[in-house]
């Protein structure tokens, strides 16, 4: 029964909640960015107003576009972002609520790594198919970014898998549930903590690069290549792309939270909240998760976006391929040494 409910209702719920929360985060992000610049900023619900307007507007299909790819790309981007969110968030909440379900093992880091590429690839093909030179330039840049960010992300994945296989030998080491149930910081010596910090530092660059935010928004640089990838999109297709962007940022931030700060309420305080015969710990966990998401979103996306300028595409590639890969590799080395030493 519960399997049926989960498989039928859960995707629909995550779709709606993901879009709403993603747009809300975008609004909060714009508000905070405005505070940084000592402006008042738009209302928090501004992205919803924007969506409402975009849905009403005419959607123009350019004459020399490949119509089916052009139309399909935004929807693909949105649905694959939602898929990503499902793979990241649902196993975590299943683990927190203690339900035993086959989906518990579904949140596999390697699957996530691949699904993470789909929205970008969809948008890139949409950009190439739109027949605008600006969109083609933007799409090329996006492909470069996609390839560059893959390497540090893979290193991080392997680090976590190595760590998990050392911590818990019988658990599936790539599974997010394993990572959530054995928070990395708990079992590490000083060297390992330093390594974890380095991985976190590399995530400060990986998350904006994956979600195409400043300083890594070369693909849609509105001041130099007229919004690049999105140059020809209008009306409801643009709305879909915006929603996909919100959901994808949300998924990335949730991934960061689950990788680095997966502590539930009980892990932190050792308490369970009960009242009137019900157990409210899960509710507390959900609230805690949202607080963490907002904090990480603020630090990793809003702050980075406001205090930095856009890199040139060559600089961005160099930074991601060399600097960030070296940072995450040294994180890997430190954590490996740490587990090695503590195993002695």
């Amino acid at each position: 029964m519960i399997t049926l409910i989960l498989t039928l209702l859960m995707p629909a719920f995550v779709l709606v909640a993901g879009i709403v929360l993603g747009l809300l985060m975008k609004g909060v992000d714009r508000k905070f960015a405005a505070y940084f610049q000592s402006r008042i900023g738009p209302p928090v619900l501004q992205p919803f107003y924007d969506m409402g307007k975009l849905m009403m507007k005419q959607s123009i299909i350019p004459e020399n576009a490949v119509t089916w790819i052009f139309k399909g790309a935004p929807v693909t981007a949105l649905s694959s972002s939602v898929l990503l969110l499902i793979y990241i968030v649902v196993p975590y909440f299943l683990y927190l609520s203690g339900v035993n379900h086959f989906f518990l093992q579904a949140g596999d880091l390697i699957v996530i790594l691949y699904v993470l590429a789909i929205p970008t690839v969809a948008l890139v093909s949409g950009g190439f198919s739109s027949g605008s030179p600006y969109a083609a330039i933007g799409a090329q840049r996006e492909v470069v970014l996609l390839m560059c960010v893959e390497l540090p992300l893979a290193v991080t994945t392997i680090t976590f898998a190595t760590k998990m296989s050392a911590v818990c030998e019988s658990c599936p080491s790539f599974s997010l549930t394993t990572i959530a149930s054995h928070p990395v910081w708990n079992t590490m010596g000083p060297m390992g903590i330093l390594g974890g910090m380095m991985l976190l530092l590399s995530f400060v660059f990986i998350v904006p690069a994956e979600s195409a935010k400043i300083p890594f928004d070369q693909g849609e640089a509105e001041t130099e290549i007229a919004e690049g990838l999105l140059a020809e999109y209008s009306g409801k297709y643009l709305a879909f792309i915006q929603m996909a962007d919100g959901v994808k940022s949300l998924a990335l931030v949730s991934l960061t939270v689950i990788l680095f700060f997966p502590h539930g309420f009980t892990d932190l305080t050792g308490l369970r909240i009960t009242g009137g015969g019900y157990d409210f710990t899960l509710a507390a966990d959900v609230v805690l998760f949202f607080v963490k998401i907002f904090a990480v979103y603020f630090l990793l996306i809003t702050t980075v976006r406001v205090i930095m300028a856009r890199f040139k595409i060559s600089q961005a590639a160099k930074i991601l391929l060399l600097t960030i890969t070296v940072v995450s590799l040294s994180g890997y080395m430190l954590i490996y040494l740490d587990t090695f030493i503590s195993a002695l």
């Binding site: 714009r30 405005a34 402006r39 008042i40 738009p42 007229a226 919004e227 999109y233």
Partner: peptide
């Protein structure tokens, strides 16, 4: 800019006429 801050009314500059109202 901050002094008049048109963004608080939801006004935003976009880079391509396709997005414009």
């Amino acid at each position: 800019m901050p002094r008049y801050d048109a963004e608080r009314f939801g006004i935003k500059l976009v880079g391509t006429p396709r997005h414009a109202d």
